[in-house]
């Protein structure tokens, strides 16, 4: 019994200490983002790597999720004679919930894990120490552009996911099930509020971008200097970021109804 309590206490202390280190890292990162000189070229590179190279997967998944929503939504709504509301169901589901959450999860798997692996490998191969010895702060040169790029691209990718999702729902509802295209689009237009739904959705995506950016870079910078360490850090990024996204999503939805 005493051993169990001791283990629980030790784990709690470790978790609090880890949170403290994470908070200190986030503060240092925020400071380095506003420290001159601005790394615009590095930021553009990272936006390309994290955002542009994720376009295909985001568009494909958006269309697929929209198509599935269209099918499931149509089959349910038609029972109540409300098939004309399919546009609203697909649109609201995507905008308020599915687009920001699924975009964040997909980006975590594709770009977040790559970010951790890249920084971790740089740590293992002494590239970060090499930068320090050249009086270049790795946080400023390597980490800050990656975290900032993640923050910037997430809302844009989420918006794109939404657009392709609505298109996928349209294809199924209108082309496959024979709904009137005007009714699909007008129900969507009537149901979606710009401030509550669209801005709320972008805000969620922004928060998720912040989370994924922070977690993936923190895990990279704290990677154990071995190949197994890089593998463990990458896995940890995917698990921690995914769970955090879902938990924070609930908190945002419960508190602000977004």
């Amino acid at each position: 019994m005493v051993t169990a309590i001791r283990a629980l206490g030790g784990a709690t202390v470790d978790a609090v200490a880890e949170l403290g280190r994470f908070a200190a890292f986030a503060a240092s990162l925020a400071r380095s983002i506003v420290t001159p000189p601005p790394r615009v070229g590095r930021l553009v590179d990272e936006v390309f790597k994290l955002g542009v190279l994720s376009l295909l997967i985001i568009c494909l998944c958006g269309a697929a999720v929209g198509a599935v929503l269209g099918l499931q939504g149509y089959n349910t709504l038609v029972r109540f004679g409300a098939a004309d509301s399919l546009g609203a169901v697909v649109g609201l589901s995507l905008i308020r919930e599915l687009a920001p959450v699924l975009t964040a999860l997909l980006t975590t798997g594709r770009a977040g894990s790559a970010t951790t692996a890249e920084i971790g490998t740089m740590a293992v191969t002494e590239q970060l120490d090499g930068l320090r010895m050249m009086s270049v702060d790795p946080l400023h040169y390597i980490v800050a552009p990656k975290a900032l790029a993640m923050l910037l691209v997430m809302p844009l990718l989420s918006a794109l996911f939404t657009v392709f999702g609505i298109f996928g729902g349209y294809l199924v509802g209108v082309r496959l099930m024979g709904l009137d295209p005007g009714r699909y689009m007008s129900s969507l237009q009537d149901a979606v509020d710009f401030r509550d739904d669209i801005l709320g959705s972008l805000l969620k995506a922004l928060v998720f971008g912040l989370l994924v950016g922070l977690i993936s870079t923190y895990r990279g910078m704290t990677t154990a200097p071995t190949s197994a360490g890089v593998a463990a850090a990458t896995t940890s990024t995917v698990v921690t970021a995914s769970v955090s996204i879902l938990l924070v999503d609930y908190v945002i939805t419960a508190l602000w109804g977004v």
């Binding site: 191969t125 002494e126 590239q127 090499g130 930068l131 010895m133």
Partner: peptide, 10 residues
């Protein structure tokens, strides 16, 4: 500093 593995930015 010359690092053991070179530490060139890859």
């Amino acid at each position: 500093m010359l690092f053991q593995g070179g530490a060139l930015l890859d």
